[in-house]
């Protein structure tokens, strides 16, 4: 708006009106607000996790399993006890993709179209890599181990589904699916959005627009998804 442009040269109070108090566009502000709100969705799931897990604190009949002993597999290394190694790899991949995202945003500031494209591509690869790892992890979890768990009627149950699992109480499996699933859904949508933006970058849309703010916005989202994973990792796997 015209006032805004004339004003930028004038010293006015930060909150005095006529401009953004944070000096960012409304789109980015909205993204921040959306992420704040989405953080609460994740918190609700993690709180649910904490609440239910806490209720098992003194339960000796069906104790909460130790993640070390559930998530100890690694592709091609059958039978080796590698606690949390694979999850750590996943975490690493996701964090790495966040780094490439930072580089893409930085390249955007320099209006370097080629570099933005390259780093976006790497980010997308990282996202897809993470999702593939998660698919393997889920398969492993669902198939279960050879030992399984003996049921009351003498049969042996392997792996997990939403109704029961071999590792421990039912909510252990349920929470695994819902928490990592909901996060995976966020990564998936992040990848889809990244692909759209990537195509736009290649098509020169932002070059024409004169700025790469869209890349910054998806970048915010991507870092958020990354950050959430750190919490999921901490609460679900480590503690």
């Amino acid at each position: 708006m015209s006032e805004t442009t004339t004003l930028t040269n004038v010293k006015t109070g930060t909150w005095g009106g006529g401009k953004s108090p944070f000096s960012i566009s409304y789109g980015k502000l909205m993204m921040w607000i959306f992420l704040l709100s989405d953080a609460f969705t994740f918190s609700s799931l993690l709180v649910a996790y904490g609440f239910i897990r806490h209720s098992y604190a003194s339960n000796l009949v069906t104790p909460w399993p130790s993640p070390d002993h559930v998530f100890n597999h690694f592709p091609f290394l059958h039978g080796v006890h590698l606690p949390l190694m694979f999850v750590s790899l996943m975490t690493f991949i996701l964090i790495f993709s966040s780094v490439t995202m930072v580089l893409a945003v930085e390249a955007g500031h320099r209006m370097a179209k080629k570099e933005v494209g390259m780093y976006m591509f790497l980010t997308i690869l990282g996202g897809i890599g993470f999702l593939s790892c998660q698919a393997w992890e889920w398969t492993q979890f669902i198939t279960g181990t050879h030992e399984g768990r003996m049921l009351a009627d003498g049969s042996i149950f392997h792996g997990a589904n939403l109704q029961m699992n071999q590792y421990g109480p039912t909510p252990f499996g349920d929470l695994f699916f819902i928490v990592t699933g909901f996060h995976g859904f966020h990564v998936l949508s992040g990848v889809v959005i990244n692909i759209i933006i990537y195509l736009n970058v290649l098509g020169g849309t932002y070059e024409k627009r004169g700025h790469y703010e869209m890349v910054e916005k998806v970048g915010l989202y991507w870092h958020f998804v990354d950050l959430v994973w750190v919490f999921v990792f901490t609460f679900y796997y480590l503690i």
Binding site: F40, A48, D174, I178, F182
Partner: peptide, 25 residues
């Protein structure tokens, strides 16, 4: 609203799973 509605969303999601997919949240 922004800080509290997402929590209902999470709660509703778990309820939908309990109703339709046999979970026990």
């Amino acid at each position: 609203g922004l800080l509290s509605f997402p929590v209902l969303l999470g709660a509703g999601l778990l309820l939908i799973f309990d109703r339709s997919f046999g979970t026990s949240f």
